[in-house]
Amino acid sequence: MGQAKETKSGAVMVVGGGVAGVQAALDLTELGYYVYLVEKSAAIGGAMAQLDKTFPTNDCSL
């Protein structure tokens, strides 16, 4: 098994890459932090990526 170690300071880990996780990650970077976005599936997006249009504004999801 390969091993890798990261020693960056000022980093936050976000677990889950749905809308909630992605938004948290974006805001954290805006606030000056480095983010590891950990997602268990092959792509981020979560449930929202499966939705057609979303209320209340009914525009496309992403």
Binding site: A4, A11, M13
Partner: peptide, 14 residues
Amino acid sequence: EKELKIGAVVMAPG
């Protein structure tokens, strides 16, 4: 395997 050094964690597993 990967090890991360982090200051805080946000849980958003939906």
